[in-house]
């Protein structure tokens, strides 16, 4: 059972305190967007065997959503960070690059 550190309240929370919310950094497309953009927004998701960026909510806790960089293969957690951002913090990306040379995720590398 996974544990993540909630970046808001500092609790090392186990999965039963959390709810998973799918992929992080999905850009919303609303009315006026092209069919392609909207399709990408609504349906297209990464499914890497490797580092992934995810949304988690500390539901049985402080109630805040946070984001996590986690390897879907080894389950290593490279870090958690607040949800109010469109891009992972640089130190987390650095840590991933160091351990996963050639790492790529959407437009991140």
């Amino acid at each position: 059972m996974l544990i993540f550190e909630c970046p808001y309240c500092g609790v090392m929370a186990e999965e039963t305190e959390l709810t998973a919310g799918g992929e992080a950094h999905v850009k919303r497309f609303g009315p006026g967007s092209s069919d392609e953009d909207f399709e990408t927004y609504l349906f297209h998701r990464e499914n890497p065997k490797g580092v992934h960026f995810e949304r988690w909510r500390h539901a049985n806790g402080c109630g805040k959503w946070f984001l996590a960089a986690r390897c879907t293969n080894t389950l290593e957690v490279f870090g958690t960070y607040p949800a109010q951002t469109t891009r992972p913090p640089e130190p987390i990306l650095e840590a991933i690059r160091a351990k996963r040379p050639g790492f790529q995720w959407r437009d991140l590398a």
Partner: peptide, 13 residues
Amino acid sequence: HAHMEDWLQCEWW
């Protein structure tokens, strides 16, 4: 309630 918080925290923060 969770849906509201989701949009407020993650999209229109």
